[in-house]
Simulated assay, not measured.
Amino acid sequence: MNALTAITGARIFDGDLWHDDSALLFEDGRIAGIVGEREVPAAARTVAMAGLSLVPGFIDLQVNGGGGVLLNERPDIDGIRAICAAHARFGTTALLPTLITDTPDVTEAAIDAGVKARRSGVPGFLGLHLEGPHLSLARKGAHDPQFIRPMEQADLDRTVAACAQLDVLLMTLAPENVTNEQIAALAAAGVIVSLGHSDTGYATAAAAIEAGARMATHLFNAMSPLSHREPGLVGAVLDLGHVHAGLIADGYHVDPAAIGVALRAKRGPGRIFLVTDAMAPLGTDMTGFRLNGREIFRKDGRLTLADGTLAGADTDMMACVRFMHRHVGLDLDEALRMASLYPAEAIGMTGRKGRLTHGHDADFAALDASLSVAATWIGGRPAFAA
């Protein structure tokens, strides 16, 4: 049992509105409410955060690594714990460690680690994202082609079994290597199916979405583009309203003008939300690392293979929010929602995540005037302090 706690002195964004001269109350890991500072119960433990802004904790649905750890290279509970801790420094309070296309053995190990992380209550662990191996060779990006293959019954059975043991299981796949019947079976089992690394046309993408896919992975990147005669996967994602889409806002993966066009074009209720696609170097001074035996180079804010192919991103969620606000021109409120409320909507967890209102998880970040993270709390407990 965690005692009733009140954060005082800070401006509070509850996900919809800002509150001044107010205090955030939480107890036993859940938000108890927002009250005027003069209405704080006498029995509450108070924590002063004068001059800071409290915002809902960020939710990152695509995190390959961080803190020097890559899930593919360390698919165990300690690796997951290290990745979650690294991202907490940047305001992320819930994330999906993401396995890039790999062998069945590594996939099994990552699933086992995820199940253990859930049972152990690793702070920040939300579930798993399996990005591959059922992708398109034509849009493989940095995924190792030797491991890309069609989905077989054993893959389907493994994924369905894993979903039953996790709160969230997201799988990125391409219609080229998966049947609509397999997509329907995954969706029926609770797997969140995301289309990505695909060269599919609009009609095929629409059929996969009709079968049960409800998301798209890193919009614009590694997918068939929008053209005037073939709208491609990009066109399907923007046109079909119930599809949500992740977006890497680091200034390298998508031009700010293209981001603005996508935001104006996207039909709802599905939203575009932020992801980092972060790799092992996040939060470190590493100059490179290895993925599936290949060297990845870190330079000038980019991570690339030797041929220049982007290999994940060298960014964090707070940086993505700043980019959307300062370079794309979004109001700060909306940029914050793209990092918290909208990913919660995409995975159907708005009852617990994405807002600082009664009954929601006490996951929040404290930001300073420069929009840097001063502190992060997960489940009502401090996870990071600058």
Rank of each mutant, 00 (worst) to 15 (best):
P104Y: 05
G29R: 14
V55E: 02
R119F: 09
S224V: 06
A262F: 13
L330P: 03
G359D: 15
F297S: 11
S340T: 10
A110P: 04
T276D: 04
L170R: 14
G312I: 02
A386M: 10
A23E: 13
H253L: 07
T92Y: 01
A236K: 04
D199M: 09
D76N: 14
G251V: 00
R89G: 08
N64I: 02
F364M: 10
R267T: 03
H360G: 04
E131I: 06
M324P: 06
N2L: 15
L95F: 02
M286E: 01
L356D: 03
A211R: 10
H197N: 03
F297E: 10
A335F: 01
A42S: 13
H218R: 11
A88Y: 01
D28L: 14
R326Y: 03
F297V: 12
L226M: 15
I34S: 07
F58K: 01
I347A: 04
G359K: 15
L219N: 11
L195V: 09
I77S: 07
G141A: 08
T5Y: 06
L17M: 11
R290M: 13
L71G: 04
I209L: 14
I80K: 02
E345I: 15
L126K: 02
I100H: 02
S198N: 06
H327P: 07
R158N: 07
A161L: 12
D78K: 14
N72H: 09
D277Q: 07
T8P: 09
R119A: 11
F220I: 09
E334N: 11
I83S: 07
A203Y: 02
A249L: 03
I83W: 08
T101D: 09
R229H: 13
A236I: 05
A185S: 14
T376R: 00
A187K: 11
G293K: 03
V40Q: 08
P231G: 00
D76F: 07
F220T: 05
H358G: 10
K140R: 15
H19S: 10
R326K: 10
D314H: 13
G33P: 09
P175T: 04
I192P: 00
E181K: 14
V160G: 05
D60W: 05
I248M: 05
R158E: 06
N292T: 10
W377C: 00
A366P: 01
K116A: 15
G351L: 12
A265L: 15
K116E: 13
A117F: 00
L274Y: 03
D20S: 14
G132L: 07
A311S: 12
A245W: 02
L274I: 11
S120Y: 05
L186V: 10
S53I: 10
T8M: 03
V254P: 06
V35I: 14
T172N: 12
G51L: 00
G57V: 06
L126E: 02
A262L: 09
D21L: 12
L219D: 07
L303P: 09
I59H: 02
A383W: 00
S372T: 14
H134C: 01
G260V: 06
L233P: 01
G212F: 13
I7G: 01
L263N: 04
